[in-house]
Nucleic acid binder design. Structure first.
Lengths: 352, 352
DNA sequence: GTTAGCACTCCCCGAGTGGGAGTGCTAACC
DNA sequence: GGTTAGCACTCCCACTCGGGGAGTGCTAAC
């Protein structure tokens, strides 16, 4: 279904319905439409068109004698081609940028702050996804010897993300040995992604099972502990900011079950992570409307998200989630602009 | 007000009221009481006693012709002396312990998992507070040189907590120099708490403002960047698990505002952190009932928490938060037992 | 193709009502 | 004197009923 299938007037009316419905939250009728929208025909004509749009699956009504409201498809057509883009106001831009001027911080904090601001400006929940697992590019590894045959592993990714974990080792190694190992690995894993690092380790372990080189063997074993173990569980970080704002949205009042599913999704994360991962493919804003997000119980919510590319590499995803009835025309440009501005800020090296 | 001010029968009845109310959520009347509780007197007598308890401020009723429900004070008396302790069942213990048998992880993950299990078993939200800031004991610091005059600082606390931050430096230092500095600092800060470390740095900087020792000056400057800057913002980590479970509690249905405040408290954290910090003083379960928690809008919620002491040092706090109407007799022993068992597990060195 | 008119549908809201649960008081009882 | 039965009274709640209103869909005229 494309919006081009519709006559100009149908488009006008669909746009007006969505706009009005998003604003008021009430099903809109032909009468309201003829009064509050710039449409040059009578309620009766509008009714005919509304009826057509409903037949095409773009509008529904909650009951026979009620006004119309958009379906998921209706929103989709609206978002794809009918809505105007309301670019963020100067004030909004300032609010977003205000977060940058703080002292230098780590990527995750910059993004988290951005999502907090997004949540504030949109009155929805803000999301940040930091890719973990394989997506990251290796930059540096360091081992720190601790008591009790434990080694603190610090892995730094090119994006500036830092992962730490504690690994147990069988034989007690001196810090010097650890340093030699990390020097070796830093050299070895240069410019690889963590996924490639992992593959490389597994390969090497298979190939050189019987090597007698102590250092090499220890390095392999230690890097296995550091990279492979526990890595399959993702490592992506999903941060949700301002979830409480969604609570007060009138759309959910009286429907605790809807809310519950939303919050459960926030907690379980994996579903949302999957969804957000899909945004990694492109640097465009992705919009999932209602049931499009494929998360059960969340068919009343929409997600607007965009991946942040810095230096050609995806750094993370920021976005906003809230009731389907949201101001797409304002929120989409806002997320868009925020991502752009963040990417620019980060790539200018003020922070990393 | 002590429970000893009450006659034996009053105590019996108060206990019965709380038990029944916690179970059903409905105000309990004299009739129900005489039927469903082991009390050897008629509804009329019970009514008299209920009236006394109400006068003493332990019970209220939502309206004139309704049954009684406990006030905060009523719950307090109940918790302090009247309730029986229902120790966790074998099954519950197994569920809790099941989390330990996984591969070794960092403290925060062990605690987070415990709180997830607590949330599951109690159907409330689980909380973990990891002390940050000054409370931690210094164990190790390490600097890792990164591109663009930035240094990754890794601070390891005795408890096993790892903090990383990125500091910018004016002059580019070689990794060797950084290593020398960290060796020096590791020696210098041995056995201090982070708060003491911070104080020490500030003092030294004042005293030795004009030193000419390069290494020393750089070490001071770098450690200021590492410890002092940005440290005032707490650094405590609060993790809330299973917040969505509270949503479906019937106590809040229809009262979105209450829910909103609760969730806002989860997000803002500082209020909750303050509250949980109070638990650090002792190794006993702390219970904050209703308005006792002093958080506005959360006077319908109770918090049960206990600090985890390992080796005489507080390692963190775990707890449970939910509607005031909760099974204190089951939840308090559960939190208690979980904390004990966790502390034991951690101190046995299986993880740190 | 557009519009006015009109019958019809269905929600929503407020008023009215009866039942039920529970209290508090009084008076009798042990 | 504490305990109990009886009873009037209060108040909530769930249900029903009916009118008003918003909106539709159809038809017929423009």
């Amino acid at each position: 279904m494309e919006s081009t299938d519709l006559t100009f007037r149908s488009q006008e009316i669909l746009r007006a319905v969505v706009n009005l419905f998003v604003e008021t939250g009430e099903p809109v009728g032909s009468r309201t439409l003829s009064k509050r929208a710039p449409i040059a025909c009578s309620p009766a004509t509008i009714r005919n068109i509304l009826s057509d749009l409903a037949e095409a699956g773009l509008l529904t009504k909650p009951h026979v004698s009620a006004g119309r409201m958009p379906t998921d498809l209706g929103y989709r057509i609206y978002v794809n081609g009918l809505m105007g883009r309301h670019e963020p106001t100067a004030e909004e831009r300032l609010t977003i940028e205000a977060g940058y001027s703080r002292e230098i911080r780590q990527v995750e904090q910059i993004l988290a702050h951005a999502s907090r601001v997004l949540s504030e400006l949109t009155n929805q929940a803000g999301l940040v996804l930091l890719p973990g697992g394989g997506q990251l590019e290796f930059q540096h590894i360091e081992f720190i010897r601790m008591a009790g045959r434990q080694v603190l592993v610090v892995i730094v990714a090119k994006s500036g993300l830092v992962q730490t974990r504690i690994a147990a080792i069988e034989e007690d190694l001196l810090q010097e040995e650890l340093d030699r190992i990390s020097r070796y690995l830093n050299d070895e894993f240069k410019d690889l992604s963590l996924r490639e690092v992992r593959q490389k380790i597994v390969e090497r372990m298979r190939e050189d099972r019987d090597t007698f080189d102590q250092l090499y063997r220890r390095a392999l074993e230690l890097s296995r502990r550091a990279f492979v173990e526990g890595a399959e569980e993702g490592g992506e970080t999903l941060v949700v900011e301002g979830a409480s704002r969604v609570l007060s949205q009138p759309d959910f009042s009286g429907d605790v079950e809807k809310l519950r599913s939303l919050y459960r999704a926030f907690e379980e994360k994996n579903k949302l992570v999957q969804l957000l991962d899909r945004c990694l493919a492109s640097a465009e804003v992705a919009v999932f409307i209602g049931a499009e997000n494929q998360i059960e119980g969340m068919d009343d919510c929409s997600l607007v998200a965009r991946c942040l590319y810095v230096g050609g590499k995806p750094l993370g995803t920021i976005g906003v989630i809230g009731p389907k009835r949201m101001h797409y025309d304002r929120i989409i440009p806002l997320v868009d602009w925020t991502a752009d501005s963040l990417a620019q800020f980060i790539s200018h090296g003020e922070a990393r």
